[in-house]
Design a protein around this nucleic acid. Sequence first.
DNA 1: TTGAATTGTGTGGTCTGACCACTTGAAGGA
DNA 2: TCCTTCAAGTGGTCAGACCACACAATTCAA
Lengths: 177, 177
Amino acid sequence: MTDSLRPPSKFLAAIAQIQEMIKRDRLRPGDKIPSERELSDKLSIGRSSVREALRALELLGLIETRRGEGTFLRDFKDHQLVPLIGTFLFDGDQAKEDLHDVKAILELGCLAVLAGKADLDSIELTGSFEELTGKTGNRLLQNIWMIISNYAGRDPDHERLQKLLASARQIQYSKRQ
Amino acid sequence: MTDSLRPPSKFLAAIAQIQEMIKRDRLRPGDKIPSERELSDKLSIGRSSVREALRALELLGLIETRRGEGTFLRDFKDHQLVPLIGTFLFDGDQAKEDLHDVKAILELGCLAVLAGKADLDSIELTGSFEELTGKTGNRLLQNIWMIISNYAGRDPDHERLQKLLASARQIQYSKRQ
DNA sequence: TTGAATTGTGTGGTCTGACCACTTGAAGGA
DNA sequence: TCCTTCAAGTGGTCAGACCACACAATTCAA
C-alpha cells in the first residue's frame, strides 16, 4: 500500500462539490446557493466542514455571505484576495517596484490588444485606465489589472500613459508592415 | 449610528491576527505556526473560527497542514489557487482566448523587463519561458505568469515566442533612441 | 381597509465538547 | 543497545447549541 488510501479531506470535497453544483445548475453571479445546513445535508458533510469550504471561497472573493439571507455567487470583483496575498508575499521594498512593473506590463498589453481592434490614434487618455481595460473585452485582463492596480494604488500619471501609448503604437505599426 | 458597529467577523479577525503573528515573529516558509488549539486560546477565538481561517489560508496556498504534526508556512508556490478560480471565472470559449492573450501580454512584458536589464539579442529561447520569468527578478510577474500558464496549458510554440521577442526588441530599441 | 407592530422561520456566526486518525518522542522492557 | 509500547499533541470531523440578523406572514390597532 503506497498511499491514495486517504480520501481527500471533506473540506476539499466540499469545495469540489459546491463548484460542481454551481456549474451543473448554471448559477450566475448574484444567484443564491443552498444554505450551509442544506449543503451539509445534501453532501453528507458536517456543517463545520461546509463552512470551512465556504469561508475559503469567500476569501477568494468567489462567494458572498449575508447573515440572515444566505450565500451568493459573486462577481469576481472587490476581492480581498490580493491585498491578502500581498501581505504574505511582499515584505521588502523591491515588491513595490515589482507591482508597478507588472501593472505597467498589463497596461501596455492592454493597449496592444486595443491596437488590434481599433486605431490607437483615436484613443483618448482622459478617464482612468479602467475604461481602457474594459474596452479590450478581455475580462481576465480587466480583473487582473484591477487587482494589481488596487494594490498598487492609483496614479493619475498621464505622462507615463503617453509613453505607454507610444510603445503600443509602435507595436501596432510594426504589425502593419 | 451609521455602521461600523458590527465588528469584523472572527474569521477575518483570525486571519488578520495570524498574519500579524507571522510578521511579528518573523516566521519564514517552512516554519511551524502554533496549533489550532493554541491559536484558539491565544486569540480568544473558537477553534472553529480559527480553522475556517486556516483552511482559507491553506486554499490560498499560504500555509500547509500536516495531520499529527501541525501547520506550517508555505512558499508561495504549488498553489491550487488558480485552477480553482478558473473554474469559477471561465465558462465560455471566449475565456480561453482571454487566457492566452493575457499570457502573451505577460510574456511580452517579461521580455520588455529583460530588455531593460540585458541585451535581448543575447537571450536564448531554448528552454521554457519559466526561466525567463525567473531572470526578471520580479517575483510577482513570475507568480502570475505561472498561475496563468498553468491554467492555459503549456505550449512550446517557438514561433509565437519569436514574434514576441521581435516586439520586445522594438520596444527596447525605441527606448534607446 | 390600512398601517404598524409582532412573531415565526430561515439564515449565517460562533462556541463547545467530543471523537477519530495520525505523528512523534519518551518510557519501558528484551 | 534496540525494539516495542504508549502517552501526548496535532489536525479532521461532527453534532448540538446558542446568538444576531433578515424577511415575510401574521396580528392587531387605528
